[in-house]
Design a protein around this nucleic acid. Structure first.
Length: 649
RNA sequence: GCCACCCUAGCUCAAUCGGCAGAGCGAGCGCUUCGUAAGCGCUAGGUUAUGAGUUCGAUUCUCAUGGGUGGCUCCA
């Protein structure tokens, strides 16, 4: 089976204590200039509708014509590259991936953007030649002879010959046949399928996108190859739609919007992967946190606070120094004692639990903390808000009795979905990771009940879920929830994890009804994951046009002339008194420029005030969409805005 | 961390085959007082990321460091 999208698309295992949400979509270059969409929601609906259409076609991607086109395009590209470096180009593999294809090459020099143009041009010529694709099954020896000067192919053939792995290094059940596909004078080791002839690739629906380094077989100890990414579609319109999506994604890039909307920054002097929240970004974050805090309080959580460092022994007990040291920073020496910056909050929460004797009557306990943790990330993986070195998790740990477990899981799952919905996410996909037979703590029986409890909770919640067999981390099964954003991209946000290890290691207990000590169950969970990443996803989801309840500035007063300034400040005062975040644009610019500036800041309401409004005690609201509501009384506007804020519109 | 590319004013970008560093936007100040996406003018703003080297001379070439971009790898 071809690995669709490759490893880049695979969600990571969230570590104990959680907090990882990973973008499940590649970022790619973009193209033209496009109009801003009316709202994130509209695009979301369209995208979802489209995805459903695709599902109804009921043909798997691997069986589709599009898959053949992309696979064939990869071959055509390989031919063009081989011709560019006669006798010197070594070819590796080139599969179709989600939205396109790539091919890996070992070349005598680095490719430039100009090279891509030349390759693309040559590809069009090959396509125009309508060369038929021909398949030929051969023996291993013959195959090796044919690819005598292609070391990567030889390695692949040997893999096929021995059986056990396919050309992507994935395990195989059956002994595969060795087949070639040829078109024109290019032949590649390949199992297909392909289109009938190169003419079936639409030359106006193919585009090469980028070149990047990639390790042979994804192994950083093997040679690094040059990977050319391309995209291919059935027709020009599909290509244009795809390029539009890339462009739209680029415009929504939270790093760009973060600067334009003055939400956050990083500083070379502060350090890589460390986020500085500006007042506006801080306001959005605080609003989200306040909302979440209220939800948690209503949901029976207790808020706790814990320090940022802890002694080496703590991390020894928790197992972090054995299992997670690579993710931790070097210890600090404090009066001869080693302290570590915390990569997770759980040991502290456990110590709060252990600070006194617990009775079964107290359980379940739910300790929540906006806990800031620090994890070592290699410099090359840092990315805006999405991958950082210091971040704040909306972390919580549930401690419960065995009999409370199903209810506790139901609760946390429902809770997760309800809060995600509050932030405008509508489509969820859950993944249940089950025991890895090679690597698990406790007994097989220990795993059965919690795994089944998680599965049943997913059933009861009516969430669509898939089972990731053997994908659990060693200490327990887990549920990961991915959301689909306004552009149809998937992001892993929440994670709910069982833990068999820490209660044991910290010798946690409670006194049961029988007067005997019992070991509590422990659940780690983070719903937003980390505030940094969640904000990054939110910014991209809304394209910076936050719903009014989250918008840092909810209304800006735009006086037409300076004569209206007093009135504008007067109205702004009333709005603020009513709990609406309002500002007055008292810059010396003209009204048109003020509107333009406010549009750029994506402020929900622009309240124009001139002679008419002053006279009538009104404001003339303009929406971000450009809609002009005309003059309405100030009190009516306040009522309208208040309602929208309260209803999270 | 690895491969490639990049770092010039707050932002977006010019320029210098190695020879006085520029524009637009933004900012400050002034003029204008205007009805739904850019009014006009003036001014300030730079050790060309940092440090070394080569050179008569380095923003330009070399090396190192820091930061970034796209991938890869990693993320119990």
């Amino acid at each position: 089976m071809v690995k669709l999208g490759g490893t880049a698309y695979k969600a990571p295992h969230a570590p104990i204590g959680v907090g990882f949400l990973i973008r499940n979509w590649p970022s790619l270059p973009q193209v033209s200039n496009l109009r801003e969409p009316e709202s994130a929601k509209t695009i979301g609906e369209k995208t979802v509708a489209k995805a459903k259409e695709k599902e109804q076609e009921n043909v798997s991607y691997e069986e589709s014509q599009l898959y053949r086109i992309r696979h064939s395009a990869a071959h055509v590209m390989a031919q063009a590259v081989m011709e560019m470096f006669p006798g010197e180009a070594k070819i590796a593999i080139g599969p179709p991936i989600e939205d396109g294809f790539y091919y890996d090459f070992d070349l005598p020099r680095n490719l430039t953007p100009e090279d891509l143009e030349a390759i693309e041009k040559r590809m069009r010529q090959i396509i125009a030649g309508k060369y038929p694709f021909e398949k030929k099954v051969v023996g291993a020896e013959e195959a090796k002879t044919l690819f005598a000067d292609q070391p990567y192919k030889i390695e692949l053939i040997e893999g096929l010959e021995e059986g056990g792995v396919d050309e992507y290094g994935e395990p195989l059940d059956e002994q595969p046949e060795i087949s070639f596909y040829s078109h024109g004078d290019f032949t590649d080791l390949c199992r297909g399928p392909h289109v009938e002839h190169t003419g079936q690739i639409n030359p106006s629906a193919v585009k090469l996108l980028s070149v990047a380094g990639a390790y042979w077989r994804g192994d950083e100890n093997r040679p690094q190859l040059q990977r050319i990414y391309g995209t291919a579609w059935q027709n020009k319109k599909d290509l244009d739609d795809y390029l539009w999506k890339l462009e739209e994604a680029k415009k929504r890039d939270h790093r760009k919007l973060g600067r334009e909307l003055d939400l956050f920054s990083t500083s070379e002097e502060v350090g890589a992967g460390l986020i500085l929240w500006h007042p506006k970004g801080g306001l959005v974050r605080k609003t989200a946190e306040d909302f979440m805090r209220a939800q948690h309080e209503a949901g029976g959580y207790d808020f706790v606070y814990t320090p940022h460092i802890g002694k080496a022994n703590l991390w020894q007990t928790s197992g972090h120094l054995d299992w997670y040291q690579d993710g931790m920073y070097a210890p600090l020496d404090i009066e001869g004692q080693e302290y570590y910056l915390k990569p997770m909050n759980c040991p502290f929460h456990i110590h709060i639990y252990n600070s006194k004797m617990r009775s079964y009557r107290e359980l379940p306990l739910r300790f929540a903390e906006w806990g800031t943790v620090y994890r070592y990330e290699r410099s090359g993986v840092l990315h805006g808000l999405l991958r950082v070195r210091g971040f704040t998790q909306d972390d919580a740990h549930h401690f419960c009795r065995r009999d409370q477990m199903p209810e506790e899981i139901d609760f946390v799952l429902d809770f997760s979905l309800s809060v995600l919905r509050a932030f405008g996410f509508e489509n969820f996909q859950a993944y249940l990771s089950t025991r890895n037979p090679e690597k698990f703590a406790g007994s097989v029986e220990d795993w059965e009940a919690p795994t089944e409890a998680l599965r049943q909770a997913l059933e009861r919640a009516g969430v669509s879920y898939k089972i990731d067999e053997g994908e659990a981390v060693f200490y327990g099964p887990k549920i990961d929830i991915k959301v689909t954003d306004a552009l149809g991209r998937e992001w892993q946000l929440s994670t709910i994890q069982f833990d068999f290890i820490l209660p044991e290691r910290f010798d946690m207990s409670y006194i049961g009804e029988d007067g005997q000590p019992h070991r509590p169950y422990m659940i780690h969970r983070a719903l937003m994951g980390s505030m940094e990443r969640f904000m990054g996803v939110l910014i991209e989801h809304y394209a910076g046009a936050f719903p009014i309840w989250l918008a840092p500035v909810q209304a800006v007063l735009i006086p037409i002339t300076d004569d209206h300034l007093d009135y504008a400040f007067d109205v702004a005062g009333k709005l603020k008194a009513a709990g609406i975040r309002a500002e007055v644009d008292d810059s010396p610019s003209r009204m048109n420029a003020k509107i333009r500036a406010a549009q750029g800041q994506k402020i929900p309401y622009m309240l124009v005030v001139g002679d008419k409004e002053v006279e009538a005690g009104q404001v003339a609201p303009r929406l971000r969409s450009g809609e002009n509501l005309g003059g309405i009384p100030v009190d009516d506007f306040i009522a309208r805005a208040r309602e929208e804020i309260e209803r999270h519109l």
